[in-house]
Design a protein around this nucleic acid. Structure first.
Lengths: 330, 330
DNA sequence: TTGAAAGCGCTAACAC
DNA sequence: GTGTTAGCGCTTTCAA
């Protein structure tokens, strides 16, 4: 900046002002400075500015994995909103692991983000301490934590899965299997499984057809493998619910390979409203938790807390998941 | 840090040293300082450190979209490598738009990243100027640019598609349609389409069955719609190639809905080796461009340029895509 | 092994 | 409308 100032024949302060939109610099002076800067290949140093202004324009976001379309959608919705207002997303993958999440929180906080968005409501106790003492807005998403740290944009994974079971039972299914949700690290998957078990019991049905798929994320391939087990070991099953659409679609493909008719012999339902659910043949009955809306709403929440009236949003903003019926489990 | 220093009864300099791994501080002093810091809820300010050290530990990455599994895989591979060495990824989505890419480059460079990774080899001229004058390593990926700015980790989209066409022709297909690649903004898609046309002509076949799907990214839904057009307008087609597996799978589902046998009546091939390709029934013949390997290799390249002997990597590192044959086009 | 002074590149606050 | 001074929180440098 000093170089630009010398080259333009002004003080550094004037150069600084010339780069701010609404500051008092003569038009000609500003134009001249900007041209000089461009010619010199000068790029503004945000690092120094951040230090001085105590304002990083970063919003930290931790998701389990960028490789999951649903979490990617949430990040996308979030970044669309906050980037339009000059903020930048600082993204971290926790790999469905709370201790990795703790490390990430530590690392990200060093960058002095102005807010931090988390996926899920389970964290290590040190992570909670770090978050609280950071003194910035904390938003937990994709869940309704029992003890929220700050704000929340989410839904109950368990209750949502209960609605799905209710639908299957209403449509006449009785011997329903659940694929996924066994890994303790995927708390949302485990919650869905818990909701499944609870709903089955509430309907007086046996909830003993639980097929794990191991470490998250649930994939199509793992869903297909799990379905093989179901067909081998649980021949009386008349419906299968996947912890996600990916697992459900995998299960569907295994049925296709074995000549089992869906939904005539076995109904299949998923979770998440991935694109595959609407395109597959048969299309999958699923639950749309509106990941992008989670992101948008979180973004607007962050901005309203940061820039304006934090009171515009309630502390807990509930997403209403929608049951989407399709051919696989009408 | 000053607070910690006062609380621990030492100078700020000693506190600073206590947080570095390999500096000369007495064990007891260091332990005492770290405890004091933890108790005070002190979090190291990376911003100030970066300013002073002129070292941000950021690697900037621009991809067309996080919502594409393949690009997400590349980012994942890259971050696995560079984060293990203390760097953090600064991610931006260009939305397949070079002018948005230019804006992003400008924004990201303000954060003073130590290297920048781009997707593709087409950029605005101002973007090129910014990249060159930034004086940091620039790595272009997912393509083999005609005029590389710096390093490259990629493959030829056109040549790879030519290999796919060669396979289809060898297996007896003659009237082959191509779905996608019409949007000028998706240069990789357009390159694949160009490769398709070139290969068809080289085999003496008509390359006039081109069905566009509009703005990227190619989706399953758009692939299904395009297949509807193919079946309506081009009844003689005996094979279809999708610009990506998503489009190809969409096309497959449309065939299933219309009772058209794949591959007996129409063969279908995709591009990208998404999970859907191996799981779908029939499984899709596709091309594995190894997105994660692109990320890994790019990461290792960045680190070797930054930390050590930059000479360890050639300027252009070619990825060899692999043709993966499956049921849909054996 | 520890400390004091100087400064990274920018901007708030105050002159003029 | 523009310039001067001081300082954001850290680390380099030099001295003790």
């Amino acid at each position: 900046m000093k170089d630009v100032a010398v080259a333009a024949g002004v003080s550094v302060m004037t150069v600084s002002r010339a780069f701010k939109e609404d500051s008092s610099v003569k038009r000609e002076t500003r134009d001249h400075i900007r041209q000089t800067a461009e010619a010199l290949g000068y790029v503004f140093d945000g690092t120094a500015s951040n230090l001085r202004m105590k304002r990083s324009d970063f919003v930290a976001v931790i998701i389990p994995s960028v490789n999951s379309a649903n979490f990617a959608d949430t990040v996308r919705g979030l970044s669309d909103v906050v980037e339009a207002r000059g903020r930048q997303i600082l993204l971290g993958n926790s790999d469905y692991d709370v201790s990795r999440e703790e490390k990430l929180i530590d690392q990200l906080l060093r960058r002095r983000p102005e807010a931090i968005v988390l996926t899920g409501g389970r964290h290590t106790s040190r992570a909670r301490k770090l978050l609280v003492s950071a003194g910035i807005p904390v938003i937990e998403t994709w869940d309704l934590p029992e003890e929220p740290i700050g704000h929340v944009v989410g839904f109950s994974n368990a209750a949502t899965m209960e609605a799905m079971v209710a639908h299957l039972v209403t449509s006449g299914r009785r011997r329903i299997a659940f694929i996924g949700g066994d890994a303790s690290s995927d708390t949302r998957g485990a919650d869905r499984r818990r909701g499944f078990v609870r709903a089955m019991q509430a309907h007086g049905l046996a909830a003993d057809h639980l097929v794990g798929i191991g470490t998250p994320p649930a994939s199509m391939t793992k869903g297909a493998e799990a379905m093989k087990q179901v067909l081998r070991n649980l021949p009386d099953v008349d419906a299968v619910v996947g912890v996600s659409d990916l697992a459900a679609f995998g299960a569907l493909t295994e049925c296709m390979r074995q000549g089992i008719l869906v939904p005539d012999q076995i109904a299949i339902a998923g979770f998440g409203a991935y694109e595959i659910a609407s395109v597959s043949v048969p299309a999958l009955t699923t639950i749309d938790v509106r990941p992008r809306e989670i992101g948008h709403r979180t973004g607007r929440m962050v901005l309203s807390i940061l820039d304006g009236d934090g009171a515009a949003f309630p502390q807990i903003s509930k997403i209403e998941p929608m049951l989407t019926l399709a051919e696989s489990a009408p």
